[in-house]
């Protein structure tokens, strides 16, 4: 049974067809990369998967570990192990990073039937993970994403991923806005979490990221559908010829 299965997903936004019958199957232990031109529907796909209001499917279905997501609210999906690293992480003024993370982690633990972490245990754990990601303690004390640089926001997303230990992670352009060093750090962070029990879907425009996070499969998304799938070599082809050649060939 795939960890994540998307079957013939169709979705409209404001009467405009955005996803046009997309299907994708992701097994545990796999990393999939999705590439595609601006406006092809990549973020829409990730919002749909995460259960954002207004991104309900018109037809088709999605399964997480065999369970249909159609009647599952966004928060329940998250607690069940679906994680989305946002393309544009949202600022939460006044909400301390540490307390935000703790509520998130404890919601997930509660769902898994694990004991909630008390303040001290949590802080210890968060510091440990943060230091691996080269995230300064000081950043955890600040309000979530407020005044963070573009790169800091992305790093904080991956820190959250590491704390939540999701089953399926969708990383929406996590590489954009990162300098070379940060790209390496973030990729290392992601790679460290790769295991046989989970799966990762990376959305990116750049082949460069895939040098660090080597995918098992690459898919090209164009105009609301996957028009081509292949191995890592497909990303190199995109890099060389651009999307146009691929789209025309398809």
């Amino acid at each position: 049974m795939p960890l994540l299965e998307i079957k013939n997903a169709k979705l409209k936004l404001d009467d405009k067809d955005i996803l046009k019958g997309l299907s994708l199957s992701v097994n545990s232990g796999e990393v999939h990369a999705i590439m595609g031109p601006n406006g092809s529907g990549k973020s829409t796909l990730s919002y749909m998967l995460a259960g954002r209001d207004g991104y309900e499917l018109e037809s088709g279905e999605v399964f997480l570990e065999g369970q249909s997501l159609s009647d599952m609210e966004a928060d329940k999906r998250a607690r069940s192990g679906l994680f989305l690293a946002f393309q544009y992480p949202v600022e939460l003024p006044g909400v301390g990073g540490m307390s935000f993370l703790r509520e998130a982690v404890n919601s997930r633990r509660k769902f898994l039937g694990e004991e909630e972490l008390d303040h001290l245990a949590f802080v210890k754990e968060a510091r440990k993970v943060a230091s691996k990601m080269f995230v300064k303690d000081e950043m955890l004390k600040r309000a979530v994403n407020v005044g963070f640089s573009g790169g800091e926001k992305k790093r904080f997303e991956i820190l959250q991923m590491a704390m939540l230990m999701p089953k399926v992670s969708i990383l929406d352009e996590t590489d954009s806005g990162l300098d070379v060093d940060a790209l390496k750090i973030v990729s290392d962070g992601v790679n460290e979490q790769r295991n046989e029990e989970n799966a990762i879907v990376v959305i990116t425009h750049y082949q460069r990221l895939l040098d660090y996070i080597v995918p098992d499969f690459v898919h090209i998304l164009s105009d609301g559908n996957i028009i081509k799938s292949g191995g890592p070599e497909l990303a190199l082809e995109v890099e060389k010829n651009g999307y146009v050649g691929l789209i025309n060939a398809a």
Binding site: A78, L92, G94, A104, S107
Partner: peptide, 29 residues
Amino acid sequence: SEDQLFYCLQRGLDTEQATSLIVNGFCKE
């Protein structure tokens, strides 16, 4: 904002937790 709520929900907080967190952030000073 809808963005803020969704961000919190995506991290597993329910609507009430999210509201409470955002409102308390607003009142922090």
